[in-house]
């Protein structure tokens, strides 16, 4: 990444093509089925711009808010469908809410709950969804989980778009690199809003090095799982209900207005995530390192005596 700073005087398209080539080879897809964006958020926003407007957006609730916010800004109808009892996407309800949506958004594992939706459910949704309704599967947190990726399904589903990011397990949130995987017509629709832009050279070099670091995913997945599950186990033993997370975040039901608990934790110098209005008594906690999780637990039990 340091080496990339010297190259910032040029548009680094060759490196972007190299990143696409490496990712496509690793994932077993064609290079024209992969595009790079300055963060997967941008690919997601472009998808909402491209496929909603006259037609609606279907989202799970609670979930990552960006697609709904973007659709609302365009005046598109947004259908929010609550997660089911297993905290997975309720795919039947998502299909039923609108027979001809423009875009159906799935996030697997889901942000903010960290909960996962079985692959069979996603495949069923893909089979049943109208062929001209685009299905976006946001796999920002997939590396932390045991669920299979939907990328292999891109070959057989022309309406499937899978999103990946370097912001989570790869630790490059500030470098802004994301990928969209889909058949060329879908990617071309996104590019109408992105103009075949290019990411910064330090970011592209960091992304390439991350893909070529053969042990990184397994090592960080294990560390995250160990810290997350230990924290969740201690909270659960103390009587606090947590989501069944396979991501680098989880939610805790604090059984009172969560905004006040977020503020109280902040006074203890512990910043936790925002509150989702549909789950007003739950806080979202990102998984940090061991010392950070210890400070979170200390503050949590001080605040919630």
């Amino acid at each position: 990444m340091h080496q990339g700073v010297a190259g910032c005087g040029r548009y680094p398209y060759p490196l972007q093509y190299q990143l696409i080539e490496v990712f496509a080879r690793q994932q077993g897809v064609d290079e024209d089925q992969v595009q790079v964006f300055c963060g997967s958020k941008l690919a997601l926003q472009n998808a909402v711009h491209a496929f909603t407007g006259p037609r609606s957006l279907v989202v799970p609730e609670p979930s990552y808010e960006t697609p709904a916010q973007t659709a609302e800004a365009r005046g598109a109808k947004v259908h929010s469908v609550p997660l089911n009892a297993q905290q997975a996407h309720d795919v039947e309800a998502m299909l039923a809410v609108d027979p001809k949506p423009g875009l159906i958004y799935l996030c697997n594992p889901n942000n903010p709950t960290g909960s996962v939706t079985p692959a069979a459910d996603i495949e069923r949704l893909l089979r049943k969804a109208p062929a001209d309704s685009v299905v976006v599967v946001d796999e920002a947190y997939i590396h932390f989980s045991d669920v299979p990726s939907c990328i292999p399904l891109v070959k057989t589903h022309a309406n499937l778009l899978v999103l990946r990011t370097f912001s989570k397990l790869y630790g490059m949130a500030g470098a802004r690199v994301g990928l969209a995987v889909g058949q060329p017509p879908l990617l071309e629709a996104l590019e109408k809003f992105d103009g075949y832009n290019v990411a910064a050279e330090p970011s592209l070099r960091g992304a390439l090095a991350s893909l070529e670091d053969a042990s990184l995913v397994a090592r960080r997945k294990q560390d995250n799982q160990q810290l997350r599950d230990a924290t969740v186990a201690r909270l659960s033993r103390a009587g606090w209900r947590c989501t069944a997370s396979q991501a680098n975040c989880f939610m805790v039901d604090v059984r009172r207005p969560a905004e006040a608990i977020v503020a109280a934790l902040k006074e203890q110098q512990v910043l936790v995530g925002r509150v989702w209005p549909s789950w007003p008594t739950w806080i979202r906690v990102s998984v940090g390192d061991e010392a950070q999780m210890r400070r979170f637990e200390d503050a949590f039990f001080r605040v919630l005596v």
Partner: peptide, 13 residues
């Protein structure tokens, strides 16, 4: 302690 944006505490590879 920043546990609010689902970032990695370990940074880039």
């Amino acid at each position: 302690v920043r546990l609010n944006y689902n970032e990695s505490p370990f940074g880039p590879s």
